[in-house]
Design a protein around this nucleic acid. Structure first.
Length: 513
DNA sequence: GTAGTCAAACCAGACAGATT
DNA sequence: AATCTGTCTGGTTTGACTAC
């Protein structure tokens, strides 16, 4: 044996650890023990198989039973009382390394019962004792007796261990299934959807969001996954494919609703000529704290909507004359000008030409119905540094700059497309399509960014952020000029914006393809 | 303080068109 | 064909206002 198992032979018998009452530690319980373990380690027989040996078999006969002193009867009684199925320690010899490996390994008598410490197999006697004990425990704990009896009927410690692991795994599986079912229920609940919609509204109203439909859904999902605390979404949600897909659908539906709501409110605000501050308040409806950055972005959106409605010729909700303002002229592509000019009875190109020439007086003397609007335009502030904005020449300069931008960008695009004031490519076929408002917005937004970049490059020293902000602030001022509303622009109080809102505003942005 | 009225806001579902 | 997206519509809820 020694020659066959040189490694095992070097194991120090005294290194084996036992507990106070003589139980093996779990690690040692799995270690090889004498001949039977040697056999199992060769793969000839599983460890539990030794427990099923018939009485008086050959292995028993060959076991060096006499090599170790038996446990004292008092010790055995204690072990039996505390843990009837405990695995007794293999008594070591005096610890001498010179001892043969077989010495110190005692094979238990299979029919010796608990009192003799059978390691793996329950005898009928110990089974009976265990069942008596199980009845007592079942009553104490309140579990079915039959289940415990079935467990005891496994017949051996290894079988019991396997059964325990199987039950633990099953419980884990059941627990996970229950959790997933709960999450599914949560996803369908109104409370969850309402809370999610609240946060998503903050996302869509964020003044820094990159786009409203283009890549928005996956980017927002990514953002939610990264900031689960902000959206109060359980982490487990993203560990299940089905739930993730369901969640993505909920988000998609919610985003559609929010976009629909935003558009309808913006449309209504144009028809009623309400100020952008009121629109912001209405859209936020307590979800978020709004500030000037929100006004800027919403003014941009409203401008987009007006241009879009003019482009699509949709005057159902808002009449053409309410939609139009000379302040929009720089944003109107040629086709739209040619279409709405005759309907309004004006020559938009001429208006623009007059604006470029700075011939404000001529416009003021014009007798058409829009002289007031033109006067508005001339009074519209352009300076973004916060002056009173009554410098008409500056405004003309602004428009001239934008037309200059137009000319610059036109060289970069194909002939089939027109370019609006923001530098965005406006192909009537692509963008002025009913039901594609948000694509139009995204395109305009990208155009505004491009225009800001060009502006920053042209005007050395001007940062891109400043150039971009200037464009939006200009739109806000023009919007306030067109729709001053009934009340004054409210003074912004130093509101305490919640951290989650700041997180959304500062971090929900992505590079545009 | 309570009840009634009205407008605005909200929501769910249906539908149409676009996209995959 | 299935799915996604945007829009519309009708019912419900909410909040402001007024009269008692």
């Amino acid at each position: 044996m020694i020659s066959q198992h040189p490694v095992r032979a070097r194991r120090k018998p005294q290194a084996r650890q036992t507990t106070a009452n003589g139980l093996l530690t779990p690690g040692d319980a799995l270690l090889g023990r004498g001949r039977s373990m040697s056999a199992s380690s060769r793969g000839s027989r599983p460890p539990s198989a030794c427990g099923s040996q018939p009485r008086g078999n050959i292995s028993r006969a060959r076991s060096p039973l006499a090599a170790h002193p038996p446990l004292a009867s008092t010790e055995i009684a204690q072990i039996a009382a505390i843990a009837p199925i405990s695995i007794p320690c293999t008594p070591s010899s005096d610890g001498s390394l010179d001892e043969p490996i077989t010495i110190g390994v005692r094979r238990q008598r299979v029919d010796s019962g608990v009192s003799l410490g059978c390691p793996v197999t329950l005898t009928p006697r110990s089974t009976k004792r265990l069942k008596v004990y199980a009845n007592q425990i079942a009553e104490e704990v309140g579990v079915p007796i039959t289940s415990l009896h079935e467990f005891i009927d496994c017949g051996g410690i290894y079988q019991m261990l396997v059964r325990i692991v199987a039950l633990v795994l099953k419980n884990d599986g059941d627990k996970k299934l229950r959790l997933l079912a709960n999450l599914k229920e949560l996803l369908g609940s109104k409370d969850f959807k309402s809370a999610l919609q609240n946060r998503l509204t903050a996302c869509m109203l964020s003044p820094n969001i990159t786009a409203y439909v283009t890549d928005t859904h996956p980017q927002i999902l990514k953002f939610i996954k990264k900031h689960q605390d902000v959206f109060k979404v359980p982490a487990l949600l993203f560990e299940d494919v089905e739930l993730t897909a369901l969640f993505a659908k909920v988000v998609s539906e919610s985003l559609s609703t929010i976009r629909g709501n935003m558009k309808s409110k913006l449309t209504a605000s144009i028809a009623k000529r309400t100020s952008i501050t009121d629109v912001a308040r209405s859209l936020a409806h307590g979800c978020i704290e709004v500030d000037a950055a929100h006004w800027n972005r919403l003014a941009f959106l409203r401008r987009c909507l007006r241009v879009y409605l003019l482009g699509t010729g949709n005057y159902k909700t808002v009449p053409l004359r309410t939609l139009y303002s000379p302040l929009l002229v720089p944003s109107l592509p040629k086709e739209v000008r040619q279409k709405i000019g005759p309907q309004l009875g004006i020559d938009i190109d001429e208006i623009e030409h007059n604006m470029l020439d700075g011939d404000a007086e001529e416009d003021n003397n014009d007798t058409d119905a829009f002289q007031d609007d033109i006067a508005h335009e001339n009074a519209a502030p352009r300076n973004v540094d916060g002056d009173d904005g009554h410098d008409g020449n500056e405004n003309v300069d602004a428009d001239a700059d934008h037309n200059k931008d137009d000319a610059d960008f036109e060289a970069d695009v194909n002939d089939a497309a027109d370019i609006n004031v923001d530098g965005s490519v406006v192909t009537e076929k692509d963008l002025y399509t009913a039901g594609r408002f948000w694509n139009f917005v995204d395109s305009s937004l990208a155009g505004a960014r491009k225009a800001a970049k060009e502006q920053a490059m042209e005007d050395k020293g001007l940062a891109y952020e400043k150039a971009y902000s200037d464009i939006l602030v200009q739109y806000l001022q023009q919007d306030l000029s067109d729709f001053p509303g009934n009340t004054k622009v409210p003074t912004l109080l130093s509101t305490n914006r919640p951290q989650w809102q700041l997180t959304i505003q500062n971090q929900l942005l992505w590079s545009h393809a």
